[in-house]
């Protein structure tokens, strides 16, 4: 199981890196989203993997053999929401740049640099 998760994280990271190195905004945004997935699962996995051990205590009736580490989960939960905020800002920036400049390149062109 660990090997599957680790390889998936690796592949998503690779895809994310490849996409953020593209020259247009949309692939870069996709790449950032991909990296967010990878990083979130990475952080989550630092709590080690466990199946059928959610950190919900037994008082409400559920009964499990043990509990997984809740700390990384709490961190990742907020990270997911924050990464939505970040994606939204980046999307808005790229959209604004596209409407203003008329193209969606991420690098400054020669004429923009001199400004």
């Amino acid at each position: 199981m660990e090997a599957l998760v680790a390889s998936a994280i690796g592949i998503m990271t690779a895809a994310g890196i490849y996409l953020i190195l593209r020259l247009r905004t949309f692939p870069v945004v996709l790449g950032m989203a991909m990296l967010s997935y990878a990083v979130n699962i990475f952080l989550f996995a630092t709590g080690r993997l466990a199946v059928n051990m959610p950190p919900i205590l037994g008082h409400a009736g559920a009964n499990t053999p043990g509990y997984t580490d809740p700390m990384p989960q709490a961190l990742v939960l907020t990270a997911i929401v924050i990464s939505f905020g970040m994606t939204a800002v980046v999307v808005m920036l790229s959209l604004g740049a596209f409407i203003e400049a008329g193209n969606d390149r991420i690098d400054l062109g020669e004429e923009e640099k001199t400004k």
């Binding site: 690796g10 690779a14 895809a15």
Partner: peptide
């Protein structure tokens, strides 16, 4: 990059 991140988390897990 992917290999590095994947390897790191595998070693950690």
């Amino acid at each position: 990059g992917g290999l590095a991140v994947g390897g790191l988390i595998y070693a950690l897990m």
